[in-house]
Design a protein around this nucleic acid. Structure first.
Lengths: 358, 358
DNA sequence: ATTTTTTTGATTTACGTACATCAGAAAATC
DNA sequence: GATTTTCTGATGTACGTAAATCAAAAAAAT
C-alpha cells in the first residue's frame, strides 16, 4: 500500500498535526523537526493523494471559457470539447461555464471578459482577438488575480499566462513543405485562401507558408491572399473566380475556416485533380473532401487537447504551481486520406455504457 | 454544489442505504422504489464522485505490462511511458509492474504471461508475438478471469480483449501514399527495410504500402524486402549494399525499428538527396535525420497514448464497463521537419516544480 | 391471523487528507 | 525562576461514497 500521512508521522516520530503543518507549509514548526518530517516523506516516497485532498478541501475550480459564436465548425467542435471536459470534470472538481461572443468582435470579447471577471472564477480561457483593448481587458483580469489563457488564437503584447494552441508559423511552414513536395516539378502558381489578415493566426500561417516554400523549393508565384472572412459563400465565389482566371493554378492553401465553400467550388471545377489542396482543421467537410480526393492534406489542431491543456494550466496557476510549457505544446497533426481517424459520430457512447458509468 | 447521495435520498424519500443499493446494483429493492430513486438521480443530475468512491472502496488495480527487452529505442520509450503512467497512478489507483522478455521470443513471452497470471493482477498488457502458443497463454489468462490487452503488436486468433496500437495496414498505406506523392514523376525503384516478416505489424505495413502505391500512383518497382532484424548494424549493411547496387534508387520505406543503421548508411552515401525516405517511430535518431533532411517523413504511434489507452481498457474490463473501441483508436502521426514536437528531454520538470507538486 | 420472506431504515466505520482547536511541552526572554 | 513565546501533540470534524450490521416495516405466503 501507498504510504499515508500516518506512516510519515510514525516514521518521523511526530504527530499527525506536525506532518500536516509541514506538508501544507503552515507556520509553527522548528527547522529540525521540519527536516525530520521531510526526510521521512522522501524515504517513504510519499505522494499526496490528490483525490482525497481535493475531497477534503471541497475545492472547486470554476472556469470560464469564451468562444466565438457562429457556424464555424471548428469552433463548434471546440465548444463540444469544452462541454465534454466539463462533464468529465467530476473527478477534477472543475466546473466550466461557456460564454459565446460574435467572432472577430473585439468589443464583445472585452465585454465578455469583464463580465467573466465579475463572476470571480478560478480562471478564464478565451479565443483571443488581436486588439489592444482586448489586451487591456486581459490585464484587468490578471490584476483581479484571475489566471488567463488564450485558446487557439493568441494575442500580442498581452499579460496572458499561457497560449493553448499551435505554433501557427510552424503550421504554415508544414503546409508549405508539403505543398512543395506535392507539387514537385509541376509549374503554376499557388493561391492562398484566408479568413482575414487581421487575425494573427492567419497572418502567421501565411508567413510560415511563404518562408518554407521559398526556402526549400524552386521559385513559385504565390497569388495575392483571398480573404474569405471564414464565410463559406464568399470563399466559394473567390475560389471559383480564381480557378477560372488561373487555368494553370497548381495549388491552394486554405489556412482559415469555411472550407465548405472552397470544397464546393473545387467540386464544380473540371480537371480538378491537377490542383493540390492543403487545408486546415479536420471538420466533416474536410474529412469528406480528403476521402474523395478533393483535398490532399489537412493540418489539424486537436481541440480536445487544447481544451484539456487550457484547464490544466489554469488549475496549476490557480494553485500557484509551475507550468511545464513544453509539456503543454499542442501538436500539428497532418492527415491524408490514409490516416484519417474515426469521425466524431463513430465514437459516441452507447446508452448502456452511459448508464453503467454512473 | 453538486448533488450527493444524501440529496437523492431526501428527494426520493428513501434512506441512504436504499440509494446505495440502487446505485451499486445491490439486491433487495422493490421495483417501484428503484424507479423512484432513479427518477431522483436523473432529475437532480447526480453524477457519482469517482474520487470519493475510489477512496471509499480502497480499490487498487494492479496491472502487469510485458515488454520486449533489448535496445529497440521505441520499446525503451514505451517502457518509460509505462513507468510514467505508473507514477501518475496515484489518482487513478492503478499500480503497474513491468516484466521484460527477449524480443520475438514466443516461449519467453508465454512464460512471462503465465507468471503474470499467478500474481492475480487486475489486467495484463503485452507486446504480442504472433504465435499460437502465445494465443493459448492469453486464453489461459482470460480463463483465469484476467483481462488482456495486446500492445503495439497484435496477435491473430486470440482471445485478447483489445488491441492498443495502430492499424498497421493503414500506416503502410499512409507511407505508400506519401511516398508516391514525394516521388512524383521521378523514376526508379523503392526499397523496403523491415525487421522481420514473421512479425505481424511488419507484414501488415508492407501490405498496405504496396496496395497504396499500386492503387494511386504510376507502376513502380518495389524491391525485395530487406530484413534487418531490427538490428542497426545489419540494417546499415543492407542499406549500403542496396544503395550501391541500385544507383537509380528513388525511395526507401523503413517500416521496422533500428533506423540508426539505415541513417548511418544514408549519411555515408553521396547524392543522397535523390532518395526519399519514410521511416517509422520518432526516436532520437529519426528526429535528427528529419532535421538534417536525411529522412523525409516519419510515421509515429504515440507510445504514451497507447499505454494510457491500455490502462483505461483494462480498468474498464476489470469493472465490467464497456469499452468504446473508436475512442481508443490510436492515431497514426505524420511528422516532417516542420511539425516536429519538442524532444522528450525538453519537457523535463524542474526540481522546484516537483517539490511544489507534493 | 400467523409466519415467512422481502424490502427498507438507521447507524456506524472506513478511505486519506484538510483544517481547526486547545492543551501541554519546550525553548527563548526577562 | 518566572514569564512569554514558540513549537508540538491530541483530538475531532468534514469531504462523498462504500459497505456492513441490525432492527423494523411491509409484503407475501401459509
Amino acid at each position: 500500500m501507498r504510504p499515508t500521512v500516518h506512516d510519515i508521522a510514525a516514521k518521523a516520530g511526530v504527530s499527525l498535526a506536525t506532518v500536516d503543518r509541514v506538508l501544507n507549509g503552515r507556520p509553527g514548526v522548528r527547522e529540525v523537526t521540519r527536516e525530520k518530517v521531510e526526510t521521512a516523506i522522501r524515504s517513504l516516497g510519499y505522494v499526496r493523494d490528490v483525490a482525497a485532498a481535493n475531497l477534503a478541501k471541497g475545492r472547486v475550480y470554476p472556469l470560464v471559457f469564451i468562444v466565438p459564436s457562429g457556424e464555424n465548425p471548428f469552433m463548434r467542435g471546440l465548444e463540444d470539447e469544452i462541454r465534454a471536459a466539463g462533464s468529465r470534470s467530476a473527478v477534477e472538481r472543475t466546473s466550466v461555464a461557456i460564454i459565446a461572443v460574435p467572432a472577430f468582435d473585439a468589443g464583445a470579447l472585452v465585454a465578455a471578459i469583464d463580465e467573466a471577471v465579475l463572476r470571480e472564477p478560478a480562471g478564464i480561457a478565451a479565443v483571443a482577438v488581436d486588439a489592444p483593448e482586448v489586451a487591456d481587458a486581459i490585464a484587468r483580469a490578471r490584476a483581479a488575480g484571475i489566471p488567463f489563457v488564450t485558446l487557439v488564437s493568441d494575442i500580442a503584447d498581452s499579460r496572458r499566462d499561457h497560449f493553448a494552441g499551435i505554433d501557427n508559423i510552424a503550421a504554415g511552414r508544414t503546409a508549405g513543405n508539403l505543398m512543395g513536395r506535392f507539387l514537385g516539378v509541376e509549374k503554376g502558381p499557388v493561391a492562398v485562401l484566408a479568413g482575414s489578415m487581421r487575425v494573427r493566426d492567419h497572418r502567421e500561417r501565411l508567413e510560415g507558408f511563404r518562408a518554407a516554400m521559398a526556402q526549400d523549393f524552386a521559385p513559385r508565384t504565390i497569388l495575392d491572399v483571398l480573404e474569405g472572412q471564414d464565410d463559406p459563400a464568399l470563399a466559394e465565389t473567390l475560389i471559383a473566380r480564381c480557378l477560372k482566371s488561373h487555368p494553370d493554378l497548381a495549388g491552394i492553401y486554405s489556412l482559415g475556416a469555411g472550407n465548405g465553400g472552397m470544397i464546393a467550388a473545387l467540386a464544380a471545377h473540371r480537371g480538378r485533380d491537377r490542383v493540390r489542396v492543403i487545408a486546415h482543421e479536420l471538420t466533416a467537410d474536410a474529412r469528406g473532401a480528403l476521402k474523395s480526393g478533393l483535398i490532399d492534406a489537412v493540418l489539424n489542431q486537436d481541440a480536445g487537447h487544447e481544451v484539456r491543456s487550457a484547464i490544466r494550466v489554469l488549475r496549476a496557476r490557480a494553485d500557484g504551481l509551475p507550468v511545464v510549457a513544453a509539456q503543454e505544446r499542442i501538436r500539428i497533426d497532418i492527415f491524408i486520406k490514409e490516416n484519417l481517424p474515426p469521425a466524431a459520430g463513430e465514437d459516441e457512447q452507447l446508452p448502456q455504457a452511459r448508464a453503467a458509468a454512473i
